[in-house]
């Protein structure tokens, strides 16, 4: 039986889905000084995180990270634990936008993205962590993927494996420096858990965010809440007022502004901040928070107070 027509048909079908989009950049980029670790069996999580942390100046090793990352019965490491352990080492675990251009922008910014790959297929996934250390429009991607030397992946094969793992990519960032491709909500989300474990690092991350994105309401809201927790009510009110001015319909920002106004004795301003919101129209959890704030401030006598921005 002649199978040639079948192979031809199969070849054409495969070619049909082979249209790669043009390369996001024309030039190659390669990072030096990102350690590659030859991993032990099932230890790609510690190996990859160690590479990324070391590239960020943290002294660690796959062996040191193993006890905090490996799960024997699952034969691997969870994404959420990579985030938690990154914070434990004083770095921000920042999620990258799910685009190839973001990976390359991070490389050009000097940071190696930690990616999740699916080496199997979607119906039979085989998960693997690796660290991206280079890109070349001709030759594809260079990854620290658990061997002593970086491995070369064609652009097509890398993108498929990354896509089939949900295009998850993590940057290990210093709190004082926002990598180029990072978006404001992802930066704030990476910093917020540090408010609990390392408040000065969260404060630094918010401060640099407010310098880079002064017109982002979420950034101002984060700074406002952090300043409040630090006892700096004047700065807190200033930032929260900015957040509310940027997004007047955001009830959560208004709620936090009301709380801080109330805390500094300005019950009148606190009431004004919430006057426009109809609790019945808000999601239940948010309405509950606002209801609680209103209950607290309505117990206080009316009090005006000076604007903190005034000289």
């Amino acid at each position: 039986m002649d199978l040639r027509p079948l192979w031809l048909a199969l070849g054409l079908t495969l070619a049909g889905c082979a249209a790669l989009p043009p390369s996001p950049v024309a030039e190659a980029v390669q990072l030096v000084g990102v350690p590659a670790h030859a991993q032990e069996e099932l230890q790609c999580g510690p190996a990859a995180l160690s590479s990324a942390l070391q590239a960020s100046g943290v002294e660690t090793s796959p062996e040191a990270l193993k006890k905090d990352l490996f799960i024997p019965a699952r034969g691997g490491s969870l994404q959420v634990e990579l985030l938690a352990q990154t914070r434990r080492h004083g770095r921000l675990p920042v999620q990258l936008p799910a685009e190839e251009a973001a990976l390359i922008a991070a490389l050009r910014d000097g940071l190696p993205p930690l990616v999740l790959l699916n080496l199997g297929v979607r119906s039979y996934p085989v998960w693997h962590y690796a660290v991206l250390v280079g890109y070349d429009p001709e030759q594809g991607y260079l990854l620290n993927d658990g061997k002593a030397e970086p491995s070369r992946y064609s652009r097509r094969s890398f993108l498929r494996r990354w896509d089939w793992a949900g295009r998850w990519a993590l940057l290990v960032s210093r709190p004082e420096q926002i990598p180029e491709p990072v978006r404001p909500p992802d930066w704030i989300a990476a910093a917020a858990p540090l408010e609990r474990s390392a408040p000065p690092l969260a404060a630094t991350a918010y401060r640099v965010a407010a310098q880079r994105w002064p017109e982002q309401a979420l950034v101002q809201a984060a700074l406002g809440a952090e300043r409040y927790a630090a006892g700096d009510l004047a700065a807190s009110v200033q930032a929260l007022r900015k957040a509310v001015a940027l997004e007047p319909d955001n009830a959560a920002y208004a709620n936090n502004l009301a709380n801080v106004e109330w805390a500094r004795g300005c019950a009148t301003a606190a009431r004004t901040a919430l006057a426009k919101f109809d609790l019945a129209a808000l999601p239940p959890a948010l309405a509950a928070s606002l209801g609680q704030t209103i209950a607290e401030i309505s117990a206080a006598p009316a009090a005006a107070c000076p604007d903190p921005a005034a000289p």
Partner: peptide, 14 residues
């Protein structure tokens, strides 16, 4: 105050 909404939740909502 109990009624402050934490940044972690705000960011997650965004």
């Amino acid at each position: 105050p109990a009624a402050m909404i934490g940044t972690e939740r705000l960011a997650a909502q965004s």
